[in-house]
Design a binder for these strands. Structure first.
Length: 140
DNA sequence: GCCAACGTTGGC
DNA sequence: GCCAACGTTGGC
């Protein structure tokens, strides 16, 4: 089981938009960066992802689950990029802000901070657990 | 709105 | 294949 982080500009596609979709499930499309695409291709069914809002928000809103592994992104005419299907899981009681992550030295090697332009990235389990604690969703 | 950090494109 | 010029992302 792997953990990921998916970035989106909430004006374009938000947590709420995804939640309003049938079965809270929607296609994660529009990725046009090869490194991000390669990460999409590594995602397995039931892997979990953080749902991150960029722009004015810059915070992790909640978690979602990969319910369908990668397939061709129909919005890409050149057929080079792929999508996955994701389903909303848990909305954080307390969204975890980029700022709070940056403040904590624990996260100094987190890819989120090192490659600010990468929109689909792997999350080490130690960061996953720590962020879940900060969100007040999970007890441990 | 600016700009750093990347990515991409196209001339050579 | 190099790299200058240009385009994009996303944090500030």
């Amino acid at each position: 089981m792997k953990y990921w982080l998916l970035k989106t500009e909430p004006n374009v596609w938000s947590w709420q938009d995804n939640y309003k979709s049938k079965l809270h499930t929607a296609e994660w499309d529009g990725v046009r960066n090869y490194q991000a695409r390669n990460n999409l291709k590594k995602m397995k069914k039931n892997d979990l992802c953080f749902f991150y809002h960029t722009g004015d928000e810059k915070k992790i809103i909640g978690t979602c689950k990969v319910v369908k592994e990668y397939f061709l992104d129909k919005s890409d005419k050149d057929k080079k990029f792929v999508s996955v299907m994701i389903k909303n899981e848990k909305k954080f009681l307390q969204p975890v802000t980029l700022n709070s992550i940056k403040q904590n030295p624990f996260f100094k090697d987190f890819i989120l901070l090192k490659q600010s332009r990468l929109s689909v990235l792997n999350v080490d389990i130690k960061y996953w657990k720590k962020i879940c604690k900060m969100s007040n969703i999970y007890q441990n």
